[in-house]
Amino acid sequence: MSYFRITLMRSGIGLPEKTQGVLKALGLRKRMTTVYYPVSQSVAGQIMRIKELVDVKEVKHAMTKDQMRAARRPDPGYYVERRGVEEMKEL
C-alpha cells in the first residue's frame, strides 16, 4: 500500500473558501506542513483542488510526526561506546 506525501508549499491565504476548506480538511494548516494519506480517489480529488499549492510524492510508507522530526535531526557527531550505568552494575 502506498501513500501520498503532501507538503504545503504555498499558503492558501486569499484563495476561495472551498480551497481553504480542502487545506483544512487535509490538515495542512501552515506552510511546509507534511501529511501522509493512503492513495485513493477521494484523496487524489482533494489534491487536484489544491494542486498549485502543494508538492506531492508517492511513498511506500507513511511517517508519523515523531519520525519526521527524527529524520530532520542532524547527526550528533558522536556515538556511545559504553554507558556508565552498565559499568557500575559490573562492579
Binding site: F4, V39, M48, D55, V56, E58
Partner: peptide, 22 residues
C-alpha cells in the same frame, strides 16, 4: 503543477483506479 498531476495519475493507475477529473 504538471508533476503533481502526473504523480496523482501514476499512483492511481498503479492501483487500477481512475478519476473523472483527471
Amino acid at each position: 503543477v504538471d508533476s503533481v498531476v502526473s504523480t496523482l495519475d501514476r499512483a492511481l493507475a498503479r492501483q487500477g483506479e481512475s478519476m473523472k477529473k483527471m
